[in-house]
């Protein structure tokens, strides 16, 4: 390849450095400032660290127990993101595998069918799911029974929404990885006497693991930091860290919001490093 073409990437290199590092620096600076208004007048902003204490202190007496809402929210985020990732992996892998074995070979078609629901607004979709989880709902009024067995406000409701919203991000990388496995390998394994089940575990799955790691990260991160789905499907009762950040930004308490965002950013950069151990160029990311 002509090294002349390297120059094509220069604008993008500048763009990436500017738009990745500058905003992170801005978030960092605000996180250690006293900025609690949308007034970004530089002369009014000064250094402040006191709000960082809330991360460890912020303990309120609830029924005689000490309690920290930030840490609880982080814990919630972790639990919900983990379960969502695990279930998305089981279902998503299964579906990707079935698609691979089916006769549909046009990746463009598969891609479109998997991501088409995303063309409708996320709030509309979540509200729609919420509406059929209520006691009296449109589905019940037509068919006489409930389509979903759990009601709004329960962890199951939130998990259902998260899983089926983010599963496309699991299916696509896994499918990409599966697609690259040569059929000969599977046939050879079967010919050598391995059962179909063993062939899958010893040959197919390890080769698709790259896709599983990418998919897991693509599902875990937005679930961990997101706020719309838990807010709508939990009736506002399950608070993830994204919800707290959203509230702080909504009420212009930028320093606390940035502080929490910074912690998420560390998690994200960690994930990217993890990703590169399995997939050096993020090829299977989608």
């Amino acid at each position: 390849m002509n090294s002349l073409y390297k120059r094509l990437a220069i604008p993008y290199q500048v763009w990436l450095v500017l738009l990745v590092f500058l905003p992170i620096m801005a978030i960092l600076l605000i996180a250690i400032s006293n900025l609690t208004t949308a007034n970004f007048n530089l002369s009014d902003i000064s250094f402040q660290l006191s709000h960082w204490n809330d991360l460890v202190e912020n303990q309120s007496l609830v029924d005689g127990e000490y309690f920290n809402s930030y840490l609880t929210a982080f814990k919630n985020s972790f639990i919900y993101a983990s379960i969502t990732t695990l279930v998305s992996f089981i279902f998503g892998y299964f579906l990707a595998y079935q698609i691979k074995k089916s006769r549909i070979k046009n990746k463009f078609i598969i891609l479109t069918i998997i991501i088409l629901p995303m063309w409708s607004n996320l709030i509309l979709r979540s509200e729609a799911l919420r509406s059929v989880m209520l006691d009296n709902n449109i589905f019940k009024s037509i068919f006489g029974f409930d389509i979903l067995p759990f009601s709004v406000g329960t962890p199951a409701a939130v998990l259902f929404g998260l899983i089926f919203t983010y599963m496309p991000f699991m299916i696509l990388p896994v499918y990409t990885a599966l697609e690259k496995i040569e059929v000969n390998l599977e046939e050879a394994s079967l010919d050598l006497g391995l059962t179909p089940f063993k062939t899958f575990w010893k040959v197919v799955f390890p080769l698709s693991f790259k896709g599983v790691v990418s998919g897991s990260i693509m599902v875990f991160l937005p679930t961990f930091a997101g706020f719309a789905i838990p807010k709508i499907l939990s009736n506002g009762n399950i608070v993830l860290i994204g919800n707290i950040i959203e509230t702080k930004f909504t009420y212009n308490i930028y320093n606390v919001g940035s502080m929490l965002a910074l912690l998420i950013l560390i998690l994200i950069l960690g994930s990217i490093l993890l990703l590169t151990r399995f997939d050096k160029e993020g090829e299977t990311l989608l």
């Binding site: 990436l16 450095v17 738009l19 990745v20 500058l22 905003p23 992170i24 801005a26 978030i27 990260i217 693509m218 991160l221 937005p222 930091a225 997101g226 706020f227 994204g242 950040i245 959203e246 930004f249 930028y254 919001g257 940035s258 965002a261 998420i264 950013l265 994200i268 950069l269 994930s271 990217i272 990703l275 590169t276 050096k280 160029e281 993020g282 990311l285």
Partner: peptide
């Protein structure tokens, strides 16, 4: 490519605000 992944994986709210 590592850097290229940052905008994809970064939390929307962090990207949007920054």
């Amino acid at each position: 490519m590592l850097l290229n992944n940052v905008p994809i994986l970064n939390a929307d709210i962090v990207t949007g605000f920054s």
